[in-house]
Write a protein that binds this DNA or RNA. Structure first.
Lengths: 203, 203
DNA sequence: CAATTTAACTTAACACTGTTAACCTGAGCT
DNA sequence: AGCTCAGGTTAACAGTGTTAAGTTAAATTG
């Protein structure tokens, strides 16, 4: 009736699904709970989504898009590639800290649970990689960065950052270590790895 | 009767639980399945474990111990700190590649699912951190490594490696990127980050 | 040795879960 | 007016973690 935004119920389901996820966590996320809070029968969800995973992946998709926009807008003003990397890393970290449950959603889904879904869904996620790839290429051209395989290096960049945030969010950090210091130090460490190693003919 | 090893049933449950986990994956791991394969009623598991999470944590614990031993034995022969880091990283990666489901078990458990368990269980996991901490300290003393906070740096070391393996195991890697090259390059990248920068005759 | 406590195990049941099949209902088109 | 069919429903299946209550056999005690 009201022609809310997208197609009525589907949008509503997605919205309350995200609410449930944010308030109860992935562990306690169930279709029936989403249905209850949407004033719909549980089976109605199946009219709009193939199954639970499909709904979860839709949420994941939206989150990835959100994160990518969050990142893309941030480096428009910057010029220096190293500065860009810094901005990207810090934005990524902040996103994870501010939206831990949504962030975890992106990664919690293991390959097994993924398997029945097409890789096509990962295409969008690549935007983030492409961004770093081109920043690295710029850096190489400017003689600031030493990388033979920028695309590969871009994957390494995100993988390292993810590892850092994974440790932080799962609260595995030694109590003697300050979280902020850990993150700051990690970013420095990761980015240093890309800088030209001066006065040293690497290999 | 047969006084198997530890305490009869408990050991048996753990063993078949690990089998189920390895064959069916964490996603399809259920107490009832474990019970069925152990020729025991499902409720019997509760005589030996507080609940499902407790059993899973026991498996996790054993896996961490296994991984730590795997790592500890590897650096006994080596002398050079940089070489030690290399060995540790490679062993870690191999463990993850050879035992992906056990490896994921260590990390899949999110903080939420953890929360009702004492941090005390994480103590054992720290052995790995301590190992790297002391290697880094040796390196600093030998003038090969530049680190002001070795313990913090040790955490970064593992976090980065975990991030890399997380991306690899969840099959998120771009198809144009070779897995082996990615891992090799990542390790180089991570370790380079620890070497002394500036003019230096290392190697 | 007999009585009793206790540990190890069982069955039955509760309140959930994802998912499917069968049914209904009303708007739009021919 | 009759038909199709998208969008919704209820009922049911097979499975889950977990608890309560009952059994049974071994160990401990008087």
């Amino acid at each position: 009736m009201a022609q809310t935004q997208e197609k009525g119920l589907k949008r509503k389901i997605i919205t309350t699904a995200r609410q449930v996820l944010l308030s109860d966590g992935y562990h306690n996320f169930s279709l029936r709970k989403v249905a209850r809070k949407s004033d719909v029968s549980a089976t109605s969800i199946y009219l709009h989504f193939e199954n639970k995973d499909d709904l979860v992946h839709t949420l994941m998709d939206e989150t990835i898009r959100k994160l990518n926009n969050h990142l893309k807008n941030s480096i428009k003003q910057a010029i220096d590639p190293i500065e860009k990397l810094n901005i990207l890393a810090n934005r990524y970290v902040n996103f994870a800290l501010e939206n831990p449950r949504e962030y975890q959603l992106i990664y919690v889904i293991s390959s097994e649970e993924m398997s029945r879904y097409p890789k096509e869904k990962f295409r969008k996620a690549r935007k983030g990689y492409e961004m770093v790839t081109s920043v690295l290429e710029d850096g190489v051209r400017a003689g600031l960065i030493d990388e033979k395989h920028p695309r590969l290096a871009a994957y390494i960049f995100w993988a390292q950052l993810h590892g850092v945030m994974s440790v932080v969010l799962s609260k595995r950090l030694d109590t003697r270590i300050d979280q902020k210091a850990f993150i700051k130090e990690s970013i420095d460490h990761i980015i240093n790895g890309y800088k030209i190693r001066t006065a040293l003919k690497t290999e």
